[in-house]
Design a protein around this nucleic acid. Structure first.
Length: 676
RNA sequence: GGCGAGGUAGCUCAGCUGGUCAGAGCGCGUGAUUCAUAAUCACGAGGUCGGCGGUUCAAGCCCGCCUCUCGCUACCA
């Protein structure tokens, strides 16, 4: 049951930064392998991608750099697009969501759902900037983090302590646009009632797609079982696709709603036949994504498509896990990454080395680590030693003995036949894993064809036979060249650049996939060209340079982290005296059930004994702190945490790594002593 | 804390519905070899399959508890 055509999408890169090896290993390299394979099989396939250019982070970036959002996305769109192209990611189209077709497509999509009553409208309170006269996205609000005191925390997250926040949690919220103090104001938005799609999703994914990768299936199950909530599809923002409804000025489609529609608009842009790819049940739709995108591609976007009604749904969503770099998480903001455009500049002509390493070490089932030592080893010990070396041997020998002409097969030994049998099995061994998105395994099998070649030469030793049995040498080299020709086919999805070089050496054109492993690809008498090296050795110094670079980045980050928080604005003495800070003694301590960080403490404040809940459980054991004297703010408004009324706040000093230390008197002091 | 995914030879990973499942590549050791970018080929070294219980005639593969890593989520006055 061969699908009539394929529509393959790769996650839209967010245009606020360049693409790095994590993106490549997770999404683009596997997608490209799959697509190149399908094309070689002669399938009708469209490979779709583009930049995701809307959303708040881009507007922030623009503001910070003194640019317009359009300028920001123009910049990164071209860097990304160019890098992909140079790296041989063979999109049929690399579009962008800020263009006209996309705006029209997304608007139409929204309008159809709205007209058919598929949305729910709801009014909520959000922060509004009275000076700029606009609603503020969480990212546009800064204030003091209620958890760590960092005064430049964002409304959705404090980057210092890493905690996620609500804008309304911030102390002294401030608009980053005007600096004004924001006020809460009512605003209404459209919601996609995902809860209504729950039974359908349950059936569609949990029953009908049990074959999805376990990480994908598990995540979906977790979301569905957890109960789906209506999700806002619009935001108060001036950057994005305007909500196509009268009176909705100042509102745009929420980026998660507009971005996946980008796949559709890009297809539209690519071909007038786009509906065949999106609406015909005989099309197989596959989304390649990273694990961070599972919920959008498996739950939300399908629900959107289902709501719209005329679109097909993805048949599979092969999401990869994450790639680490030298043991640490890749991070754009910390510059902890190998950037594709930089790699391409530094490692000219070595595109395939990175493609190979990222495939061989792809995070298909769990997070993996990219190290430069591994990069070097895979190049030198595998690509070069196994593949490059075999090809070189076969060609050099042919030139040495037969002036570069494919010699005839004169008689086949039993061993020759054995080898031919093995050759013929390679195709299926590569095909199967590719069709099930196991590219690491497929590459391994493809490499085995080169291994077979090396073994064949070692076993037959033609260089020893030339003087005595030239006919035998002819046969051996013929077969070796046939293996080499097979390699130009089977390696093409993985190593497209090297394959072009190899074909030139063999003086042949691109060959049909089904010829892999055949022993009569090259005609006897065919003249081949002089061999060149397919891969160059990567020296230790290259690795050291890269490691040095990373080390420097680490140092820079350390320095950044070591910066001491700036002094807060002056306050009056009166302000200070409002705080009643005392020495207290911990009488009892126990961890709060079902939390990681919370400890419930009973404190003797001198004034009374009271309960305080404090986020210190990660660093202290209850038994170790009982009897300890601590500093405590006792006149802080009580607040309920996890059902416990917390009456005060223990003062803690925080180290750069986030660990905590009590601020205790040097010597035992009477509980209730005033600290001032 | 909840949920999800992982914890298999030095490294990176395969092991489908339980019974040749204890494997591959790289690294390492020994030997062979010289056509080849000191590349190749053969052989080997053995990891109590995270830990403890349990089910079974039989368990990396099933169940329970524990532990570590990653992700999502809750919590941090």
């Amino acid at each position: 049951m061969e699908p009539k055509r394929y529509l393959i999408t790769a996650a839209l890169p967010y245009a606020n930064g360049p693409v790095h090896i994590g993106h490549l290993a997770g999404v683009y390299v596997p997608a490209d392998i799959y697509v190149r394979y399908l094309r070689m099989r002669g399938r009708d396939v469209k490979f779709i991608c583009g930049s995701d250019e809307h959303g708040v982070p881009i507007t922030i970036k623009a503001r910070n750099e003194g640019l317009t959002p359009q300028q920001v996305v123009d910049k990164y769109h071209s860097i990304i697009k160019d890098a992909f192209q140079r790296f041989g990611i063979s999109f049929d189209i690399y579009s962008r969501t800020s263009n006209k077709t996309h705006h029209e497509t997304a608007s139409q999509f929204f309008r159809k759902l709205d007209d058919e009553g598929k949305f729910v409208e709801q009014t909520t309170e959000q922060y509004f900037d009275p000076e700029a006269k606009q609603f503020l996205a969480d990212r546009y609000i800064t204030g003091t983090c209620p958890k760590c005191g960092n005064e430049s925390a964002y409304g959705d997250q404090c980057e210092k302590c890493g905690s996620t926040l609500n804008a309304t949690d911030l102390i002294n919220p401030k608009s980053t646009i005007s600096g004004a103090k924001p006020e809460l104001k009512e605003t209404s938005h459209w919601y996609l009632p995902l809860d209504q799609y729950e039974p359908w999703l349950r059936q569609w994914i949990l029953e009908e797609h049990k074959e999805w990768k376990s990480n994908v299936y598990g995540q979906c199950k977790s979301w569905i079982d957890g109960g789906l909530q209506p999700r806002a599809v619009s935001r108060d923002l001036d950057w994005g696709v305007p909500v196509p409804v009268d009176g909705a000025t100042g509102k745009v489609l929420y980026v998660w709603f507009d971005a996946p529609i980008g796949y559709i608009s890009a297809t539209k842009e690519l071909t007038p036949d786009w509906e065949k790819y999106w609406k015909d049940k005989e099309t197989k739709l596959v989304h390649f994504i990273g694990k961070d995108n599972i919920v959008f591609h498996c739950i939300i976007f399908p629900a959107m498509l289902k709501a719209e009604g005329s679109f097909i749904l993805p048949e599979n969503v092969p999401a990869n896990e994450f790639l680490n770099l030298e043991g640490d998480k890749i991070s754009t903001s910390r510059n902890w990454a190998v950037w594709l455009h930089e790699y391409l500049d530094t490692f000219k002509g070595q595109e395939d080395v990175l493609r190979y390493v990222l495939t061989a070490n792809a995070p298909e089932t769990k997070d993996n680590d990219f190290t430069w030592a591994d990069f070097q080893a895979r190049n030198n010990n595998e690509l070069l030693a196994v593949f490059g070396n075999f090809v070189n041997r076969a060609l050099v020998l042919t030139h040495k003995y037969f002036e570069g002409v494919v010699p005839p097969v004169l008689a086949l030994s039993d061993y020759d036949k054995e080898v031919m049998q093995e050759m013929s099995e390679v195709r299926e061994k590569v095909e199967k894993p590719i069709e099930s998105y196991r590219f690491r395994e497929a590459l391994q099998e493809a490499m085995n064809l080169a291994r077979l070649g090396n073994k064949y030469l070692a076993e037959t030793e033609p260089w020893k036979l030339w003087k005595t049995e030239p006919d035998r040498v002819a046969t051996i080299l013929n077969l070796s060249l046939q293996i080499t020709a097979g390699l130009t086919i089977v390696m093409e999805p993985f190593l497209p650049f090297s394959v072009v070089k190899l074909r030139d050496m063999l003086n042949i054109k691109a060959l049909d996939w089904t010829l892999i492993g055949q022993a009569d690809i090259l005609a006897v008498g065919h003249k081949i060209n002089q061999p060149e090296l397919l891969f160059v050795k990567i020296e230790d110094s290259v690795v050291e340079t890269q490691l040095e670079r990373l080390k420097n980045i680490k140092n820079e980050n350390l320095i950044k982290n070591a910066t001491v928080a700036e002094q807060l604005p002056n306050i009056s003495y009166d302000d200070f005296t409002k705080m009643d800070i005392r020495v207290g003694k911990i009488l009892q301590a126990e961890k709060v059930a079902k939390t990681k960080k919370l400890m419930k403490l009973l404190i003797d404040t001198g004034v009374d004994q009271r309960t305080v809940v404090s986020g210190i459980a990660e660093y202290f054991e209850p038994a170790d702190i009982i009897g300890k004297q601590v500093s405590m703010l006792i006149n802080l408004e009580p607040r309920e945490i996890k059902g416990i009324m917390s009456q005060g706040m223990i003062l803690m000093a925080e180290n750069a790594d986030g660990s905590l230390t009590f601020v205790s008197p040097q010597a035992e002091v009477k509980s209730g002593s005033v600290i001032k």
